[in-house]
Design a protein around this nucleic acid. Structure first.
Lengths: 292, 292
DNA sequence: TATTCATATCATTAAAAGTGATAGTTATTA
DNA sequence: TAATAACTATCACTTTTAATGATATGAATA
């Protein structure tokens, strides 16, 4: 086997039911198809079509070979798709790293759209702490990062503000604070607050520390699990607790001093002065609308 | 993409590390490869090799396309293998049906060898009762059958004696008969025998019925399960109970009247006056040695 | 620096594929 | 049944594509 055009004729003739219709479809003259398939049959030493009737029909051997021919042409199409992707200068790989507090439905939706638009570009998705995000980008280990904003990085990477991540102060529905109205700072001191350990040296926590009795965790999912156990209260990303609040499993605290929802700013991070291919560019623009 | 030879040159050059070595390997002159790859690059509009050094090395784009090219050629090889199979007149499918008492290691070993010898021939394996086996073959629903011999079929199909299937009389190690020496027919009457329901009208059972208290089952595996439960004793194919006897879980009965092991004859069945392709022929010959 | 090994290029030749005309065959229909 | 329409096979011819062999050039090696 050496000639893909002959395979195309083979399959198109099966599809169309005649050599001349196949020729029309493939933009050739009838005799080209007639000879092409005859040559294929000679090459393989296999009779593919039964020509005793007006319309050529597959022999059992042709029937047996058809799926194999289809598999070849399928692979050829995959190959061509990657060639086209290369010629559009699409990246082979885009790497995105974000704080795992940000793994929300709106984000995974964007990734799904990315898959549709760039089927030939691989995506590497990593989560880490916000502090590490900027580092990963700066060291060239990620192309795009998303993190809780932190001014100490603005010299090392390109930052782009994309919105606020709303946090709710929550506790379990059975926890004493759950049914309490108009909670003030003093009311909290007696209760355990579970807070994110952020390793920030120079700047504040992204959410305030209000209770005297503090526990720490390095991941919001850990904190959520402890809150569900009824161990205390905490500020948690709204998207992480929305379902549980609606189900009545967790409660938002009625804090008198939180005039509006606590919402730390979120930055998108890219390497300084770095050009982007179309896939990365698309993802960059899409992520700007993450909080819309 | 239209030219598989160019893809072969592409991959062989990567393999060999040079155009001239590739040419030697593919039986062409160096300039053919040089031009062939140049044409491929023009056709794809993708630079595959970096020629700045003495030995051409893959560009990142070439690296990215390499596995796709390999996939195409892999499918082409599969295609060619089936073509070769067809030209050796190998069957697309061979169907074998046998009594499920015969599903023994020696048989599955033969099937594994078949897979090695005829990778492009599908195998359909069915089990049924011995009585049905000959019918399946006669009606053209199986190519080869194996069954407990039954003379009533010798007009309808071709029969070929291939050996004896040894049966052991067994019971559970805790069953009263287990430790009894020199059991005679009278000793058995008081115990429950579990026998295969064979639906034979004209001929005898393949194993004798000796107890007055009889239970029936249509599958040796069912009988085995009941024996393991300690429900009674039975004649079972040796290969089905060998392990359990060695493990001391089941016991062979010490029958005074069974001078030698009970071993009904096994016949191989094929359609009358029917020509066989090479795969079926090989399987037929291999199965003759099933009991060696 | 000379040598070796490898690639690119090119004119030429060989092979393969496509074209258009024609004749023959199989269904359809008048 | 004969005429017609719709296909396919074949063939001489043209066009396109691939292979060849010779030569020039450039990179590694000693």
């Amino acid at each position: 086997m050496n000639n893909l055009d002959q395979l195309r004729m083979f399959l198109e003739t099966v599809e169309q039911g005649s050599f001349s219709a196949c020729a029309k479809k493939l933009g050739k003259v009838q005799s080209a198809v007639s000879q092409g398939i005859a040559n294929l049959e000679i090459d393989l030493d296999v009779q593919l079509f039964d020509r005793s009737t007006r319309k050529p029909s597959l022999t059992p051997e042709g029937e047996r070979l058809k799926p194999y021919a289809e598999a070849i042409l399928h692979q050829v199409n995959e190959f061509q798709a990657v060639v086209d992707s290369i010629n559009k200068e699409e990246e082979a790989l885009v790497r995105i790293t974000f704080d795992n507090a940000l793994l929300m439905p709106a984000l995974t939706k964007i990734l799904a759209e990315f898959d549709q638009k760039f089927p030939n570009t691989s995506l590497e998705v990593n989560t880490t702490s916000s502090l590490q995000v900027a580092n990963e980008v700066r060291l060239g280990r990620a192309d795009i990062g998303i993190m809780l904003a932190n001014p100490s990085f603005n010299k090392l990477v390109d930052l782009c503000f994309i919105g606020h991540l709303p946090f709710y102060a929550v506790c379990h529905a059975e926890y004493p604070l759950a049914c309490m109205a108009k909670i003030n700072v003093g009311d909290l001191t007696a209760h355990k607050q579970i807070a994110l350990k952020e390793d920030r040296v120079e700047t504040n926590q992204s959410t305030p520390l209000l209770s005297a009795n503090l526990w720490w965790a390095n991941d919001f999912l850990n904190i959520k699990a402890m809150i569900i156990q009824g161990l205390g209260w905490s500020y948690l990303p709204a998207h992480l607790v929305k379902q549980e609040i609606e189900a009545g499993k967790l409660c938002k605290l009625d804090l008198t001093f939180d005039h509006k929802i606590w919402s730390p700013p979120i930055d998108m991070v890219t390497e300084k002065n770095h050009s982007r291919g179309p896939a990365q560019e698309w993802l960059f623009e899409a992520l700007k609308g993450l909080f819309d």
